[in-house]
Design a protein around this nucleic acid. Structure first.
Lengths: 222, 222
DNA sequence: GGAATTTTTTGCGAAATGGTACAAAAGAAC
DNA sequence: GTTCTTTTGTACCATTTCGCAAAAAATTCC
């Protein structure tokens, strides 16, 4: 046992995805879950009205831990917003890539959006991007960049849908995918805002149906 | 001079519109102007992020005077919002009642809205209703009622425009004024949000033009 | 078992916040 | 001129806010 040699793993994969075996005291929280709870709070209250004490209570982490894990309040807000966007993107991805008739596709997209905006035990939470744009994006360049990217992302995804539908002959040749996409985004925005003011789901669904009729032509009133 | 009788004004108009000659120390501020300044601040920062100190500085009134004149912070916010709505209504009234072709009418309505949303020396201020809806309406019933009334007011005004245009034969018989009105409101909302995120005026104008084309039919591409 | 390392916990502190009490000021009524 | 009324200005209070320092705890490496 003299030359025990520490058995050096000759070519072990350097990035083991599980159990990195950190060195110090183990964390008492799960970063993913804590960030999700912080996101919930920010969505409910907005940036300025959310205090670190509330965030601490919601995440189960005390303030110094919050700082260590996510930085100050603004950084935490930005990370929460990134998480929100990633979640929303994930929820939409399948629908945008599925090869459905345009009408069905739009219906599903708007339905998912409605679910996101109307969720929340203490009242509908609306759309983080819209709230953020309304309050923080004017003054904060970093947040503004993310918000603008969010608009662009949504516009482009809708435009791709309409372009494909046009190629498949579902839309008349006169249809302009970019203009239709902006109308679809506008519909997203109007239901996000109205949801936040507790407009009932039925009315929002009626707005969606009307918008789809206009965008796709009102032939099949399903 | 014994029976001087205090000369009772026999039938003097009880509501003299000028110079009521108040009794105590005269006010050092003009309520209208002070409320306007408070409105500007609230539009810039939102409710929670606006402090009474800032409001005091912006209005030129010290805090006790603010409190005496408008009540606490929330009441001041509500009064500022009422003022905003009154101003916006006044700016729109003429256009909504003018008998213009529908296309021209929409162009002017959206142009006025753009001016409101893009104004502000420290960045575009957006639409107070949208900001208010996004942040306060969920939790505050009074504010929510005002916001809902704002939505309804706009929807109805647009619907009246489209209904009239349809009667005048400017729109096809298949056009649904209510649906078109919701799309017009959605366009208002999307440009309000995007303006707040500093989307350039040109892009907003393009969105408006596209929306009008869809709503009125793209024949005359003026 | 002891040293090193990372996290948690407790508690502090300086600043800002919303709101108010109270005396001084400025004008009207008499 | 005196009194009454209303507003202003100064100062204050209790609470909340964000942020951090320093000690205690939990784990790995040796």
């Amino acid at each position: 046992m003299v030359q025990k040699n520490k058995n050096p793993p000759p070519l072990a994969k350097p990035a083991a995805p599980v159990a990195p075996k950190r060195r110090g005291r183990p964390r008492a929280y799960q970063p993913e879950i804590a960030l999700g709870n912080a996101l919930d709070l920010f969505r409910k209250r907005g940036f300025a009205a959310t205090s670190l004490d509330e965030l601490s209570a919601a995440t189960g982490m005390n303030r110094p831990s919050l700082y260590g894990a996510f930085g100050d309040k603004r950084e935490l807000y930005i990370k929460a917003y990134q998480r929100y966007r990633a979640d929303a993107r994930a929820a939409m991805l399948g629908i945008f890539s599925d090869e459905l008739p345009i009408r069905k596709r739009l219906e599903r997209i708007f339905a998912v959006a409605l679910d996101i905006y109307l969720s929340g035990d203490a009242g509908p939470r609306g759309c983080f991007t819209v709230m953020t744009a309304a309050s923080e994006a004017v003054a904060d360049p970093d947040i503004r960049a993310m918000v603008l990217e969010g608009f662009s992302e949504l516009d482009k995804a809708f435009a791709a849908c309409f372009r494909l539908a046009k190629e498949k002959g579902e839309l008349p040749a006169s249809a302009d995918p970019v203009v239709l996409a902006q109308l679809a985004s506008a519909t997203i925005h109007t239901i996000a805002i109205r949801a936040r003011a507790r407009v009932p789901r039925k009315e929002l669904e009626a707005i969606i149906k009307g918008a789809i009729d206009v965008m796709c032509g009102a032939r099949s009133s399903a």
